[in-house]
Design a binder for these strands. Structure first.
Lengths: 200, 200
DNA sequence: TCATATGAGAACTTTATGAGAACTTTATGA
DNA sequence: TCATAAAGTTCTCATAAAGTTCTCATATGA
């Protein structure tokens, strides 16, 4: 029995048929119709494919019901809007535009997430235990928080400034911490923070 | 058997073929197709390369499955490991468990998102422009940040304490702001903060 | 010479696919 | 309600194709 979600050729064909049928007739097909639709004669075999599709999460089924199939819609990451809560307060509902922005943050192939330890960036609103979303970059920007690899060994989150042609200054966002200066060759910029997430 | 991740010439050729094939056909190749693709005749040898690629972390496999190969993306949505970046720094990689937690945060049916205006909760790490994920609740908890509707009109984010049987105290997380007390009938608790997101 | 990389191909195991019988459950009409 | 037809479920049997493991063999460089 299958344990993964890659479909075989026939499973894919069966799935495609179910989608086509339901769009055309507004209802889901019988097993015997699926069998005919994928050029086989046995409804038992059709049933086997239907069970595989269920296991793969492509459809859901109501056991024993006639036409007891339904297609599973993929649910994207999205957030519901505010609904009944009145506007005008210190919070506002999220627009579709912002929703897309958020979706991008989590699906962008060039970014990855790191969990923060320590509080050296607390004044930038990045707390111990938060996650930061990093976009890869070799360059640095004055206003962004960067992921920096020091001596190919230690990783840290800091603001960056160019001290002179051979040195770089790393600036924490916490008054209890000091700035530090490193020669360029000891520093490797990994990327910068594009997002931050906290789970309570 | 190999213990390191440098590919031999033929392994690289096999990997390149798999990438090309999957882009061209939208599915992964059979062993015999890989063999042909790298100019050899033995599917047994192709299998040996495929196993090496798996060991090197370039692909993953579903044993015995036809076309049971898939290419490992270097940067999945939520990074599995830090790669060359050593541990011990102030950040750490995210585990699958945490990834599920995050996914839940955004797909949970009972929660919604609000955008924060103002800085009354800044000491709790909730800044102006952040989004907070709210889980609906009529009850309140001393340690949680709540969404509160006042006089059915104004919405605010505050900590809550019970002052006495008829009054409730709303506590901001910002020393510049004062606590305020309201009679219970003017207050409606909407939910509490379970997550927070910031886009830079 | 020894370890490694490479290749062929046989032998074996597992998967993918199909037919269809036998049985259970559902839908439906009298 | 109840009988019956229709649909869903489970099962065995079968076969081709694909994956896996293995031995044998050659070449090459340290």
């Amino acid at each position: 029995m299958k344990e993964y979600s890659i479909l075989t050729a026939k499973e894919q064909k069966a799935y495609d048929f179910i989608v086509r049928y339901s769009k055309k007739y507004g209802k889901y097909p019988l097993l015997i119709e699926i069998a005919k639709g994928i050029d086989i004669k046995s409804k038992g075999v059709a049933h086997r494919y239907v069970k595989s599709l269920e296991k793969a999460g492509k459809i859901s089924r109501f056991s024993n019901k006639h036409r007891g199939i339904s297609i599973v819609e993929k649910k994207p990451i999205f957030l519901k809007s505010l609904g009944s809560i009145a506007a005008g307060g210190p919070i506002e509902a999220i627009s579709d535009q912002q929703r897309i922005e958020l979706e991008y943050l989590f699906t962008n192939k060039k970014s990855y997430a790191l969990k923060v330890k320590g509080d050296s960036m607390i004044d930038a609103g990045i707390h111990d235990g938060d996650w930061v979303i990093i976009e890869e970059s070799k360059k640095f920007y004055k206003s962004k928080v960067h992921v920096i690899l020091i001596d190919n060994q230690d990783v840290t989150l800091k603001y960056i400034e160019k001290e002179n042609s051979e040195e770089i200054k790393l600036i924490p966002a916490n008054k209890s911490y000091k700035e530090s200066t490193y020669p360029i060759e000891r520093i490797s910029i990994q990327g910068y923070v594009v997002g931050q997430v906290r789970i309570y």
